[in-house]
């Protein structure tokens, strides 16, 4: 009787711990039965806070603008910008001794979406502390002149948003031939 009670007690304790840790870390949700859309080997870490997405040949900042890469994760708060501000900050942006950073276009930003997960729909190992929220792309809408394309890392969907909205920014550059791919 008392042994059974102890076992039940421990099971309950572990269950509570599991639920609490899920809540504290707010990790993305990856439902059963869905294969990752980005295989691990497609994302290659570069020194200093950059990630190469191998198939697209694009190098992304691991942190959202406003955050800083501390060698291990992203610290600080992501900062939202209007579309014009996002473009302006991208021009001549210097990071990790590179000066070819730019705002990704709507197809480029979509390559790092991990569609098997939501909130955020991105690899948190590669892109820590990514807000599960809207990010600007460099692509204006041709059909609605007040709007430009954005992508939400809530679920990876792209949509047009009013250009005066303040949303997040992640910059990209194209890998040069002399940079490693593994």
């Amino acid at each position: 009787m008392s042994i059974l009670f102890k076992r039940v007690f421990w099971v309950v304790c572990w269950a509570i711990l599991a639920v609490v840790s899920q809540f504290v870390y707010a990790e993305s949700t990856c439902p059963d039965g869905l294969e990752n859309t980005i295989p691990d080997e497609d994302l290659v870490e570069y020194e200093g806070g950059e990630i190469l997405h191998v198939p697209s040949n694009l190098v992304f900042m691991r942190c959202t603008i406003g955050q800083q890469w501390d060698g291990d994760t992203c610290i600080g708060d992501a900062e939202p910008y209007s579309w014009q501000q996002a473009l302006a900050l991208s021009v001549g942006y210097q990071f990790n001794e590179k000066n070819s950073w730019r705002l990704p276009n709507v197809k480029e930003l979509a390559v790092i979406v991990e569609r098997a997960c939501v909130r955020p729909s991105i690899s948190e190992d590669s892109f820590p502390k990514t807000p599960a929220d809207d990010f600007w792309t460099s692509t204006p809408s041709m059909l609605d002149e007040q709007r430009a394309w954005s992508l939400t890392f809530t679920n990876g969907s792209s949509a047009i948003k009013a250009k005066d909205r303040d949303i997040f920014v992640r910059l990209v550059r194209t890998r040069l031939p002399n940079e490693p791919i593994e």
Binding site: L87, A88, S90, L103, K107, P140, A148
Partner: peptide
């Protein structure tokens, strides 16, 4: 190995134009 978007026009905050827009440099 990736396709571009097809966008070659330049947008301001409320228009889309064929010509370069220096106040909106860095777009697609």
């Amino acid at each position: 190995s990736m396709n571009d978007t097809g966008v070659t026009a330049y947008a301001t905050n409320n228009t889309v134009l064929a010509s370069y827009q220096s106040d909106y440099a860095g777009q697609d």
